[in-house]
Simulated assay, not measured.
Amino acid sequence: MMKVLRYSTQIHKWIGLVVGVQVLFWVAGGLVMTAIPIETVRSEHRLKQASPSALPVEQVLPLSAVVQSAGIAPSRAELKNTQRGPAWVLTPRDGEPVTLNATTGQPFAAMDANEVTALAKAAYRGNASPQMPVLLDPAPKETGRDGPIWRVDFNDTERTSFYLSPQTGEVVTRRSAVWRFYDFFWRLHILDFKNGDNFNHPLLVGLTVLTLSIVVTGFILLWIRLSRDLKMARAVRAARRKAP
């Protein structure tokens, strides 16, 4: 039993040194994820609820005419109302979706900084002022999108950023200092520093196995020590009973 105790102690100690920092990251990440409401992380409190508006069907070109004009054979087509008017979103079998002005069948005209600022301000809930818009190409990784995108920063306490579609002017995603803080701990939590979405990679699996070994060896050590202490306590009681 002493040999088992010695080996278990060594395994527990050295593996603990290897994974102890990561366990700290897991606990800290879990605390961050449970302490900050996900609605705050997504900046939902900074986005105004859009009032539903009627789609001007009489001004909309039929899908067949738009498809013929665009030369696209879509596998999916969606007609929706946007801040810049009705739009057809055509998704081809291969490639990215194409957004067209539903009243002309052509791509929307490019937006300038003044229009972007007005659209972002109209979608924002709060008293903060928008900063000068910036057209980014390619889109930053934090947006999870491809292609160009407009970014508008607001000088609120969370340093909120709105990312707007250059075609429709819609706020397609929102980011803030809170989101970036949360994302940092999320990446530490899953050990995916590149994309932040893979929690099945070998490094994480390996560290999880090592952490499990610490728990197992810890229970072994606990059982051995409790058994030894129990034997010692019994011996002491027996000695006392024998004493004159």
Rank of each mutant, 00 (worst) to 15 (best):
T143C: 09
Q167S: 14
D197N: 15
V172W: 07
T168V: 06
Q167Y: 02
T208M: 10
N195K: 14
W179A: 14
K141M: 15
P166Q: 10
L191E: 04
R180E: 12
Y182W: 15
P166F: 06
V152L: 12
F181A: 13
L164G: 07
P148V: 07
V209E: 12
T168H: 11
L204V: 01
L204K: 01
I149L: 15
E158D: 15
G169N: 10
L203S: 08
P140H: 00
F154N: 10
F181S: 08
F185G: 05
P148R: 06
D197T: 05
E170P: 00
E170A: 07
N195T: 13
L207R: 03
F154V: 01
V205S: 05
L207H: 00
Q167A: 15
T160E: 00
T160G: 03
R180Q: 10
Y163E: 12
P148L: 09
G196Q: 04
L203T: 10
V209T: 12
T173S: 10
K194L: 13
L210R: 01
L164R: 14
P140C: 03
V172T: 13
F193V: 05
R187E: 04
Q167P: 05
L188S: 06
D192G: 00
K194T: 14
Q167M: 08
V209R: 03
F181D: 11
R174G: 05
D153R: 05
F193G: 08
V205D: 07
V205F: 12
N195G: 13
